[in-house]
């Protein structure tokens, strides 16, 4: 059930400017409104894209959050790959693991 709330934080952040303001004003207080494990809370405090991906956050939610954090596209993809190396395979969610995380985009190699 925890993944549900982890994704809900990001869903609401992605679509609501007032939640973005709360994020910037007092992130810990914002997170108090959701049932999160310590690991999930830490991933949000640290903006740890790799861990959030491994915890099972849907990429369609995570991609927008990464843009909110001003993470460039290829860095976003690389952060997820690094997360797999550091934390292991995706644990929950729509993709337990969709592949080995190789790059399919030539532009990202330059």
């Amino acid at each position: 059930m925890s993944l549900y709330y982890l994704q809900k934080v990001l869903y609401q952040l992605n679509r609501d400017d007032r939640v973005k303001q709360e994020y910037h004003a007092d992130l810990p207080a914002l997170l108090d409104g959701y049932e999160l494990s310590d690991e999930e809370r830490g991933a949000l405090i640290n903006g740890d894209i790799g861990l959030l991906y491994v915890l099972g956050v849907n990429g369609q939610i995570l991609m927008h959050y990464a843009a909110f954090l001003n993470i460039e596209w290829f860095d976003y993809l690389e952060s997820m790959r690094a997360g797999i190396k550091k934390y292991g395979p995706v644990r929950e969610g729509v993709y337990a693991m969709t592949g080995g995380g190789q790059s399919f985009t030539l532009e990202g190699e330059r």
Binding site: Y53, G59, M63, T98, T105
Partner: peptide
């Protein structure tokens, strides 16, 4: 497609 995942770009 595998959008917004590490496999983004795979088709």
């Amino acid at each position: 497609h595998w959008p917004a995942t590490p496999d983004s770009g795979k088709i």
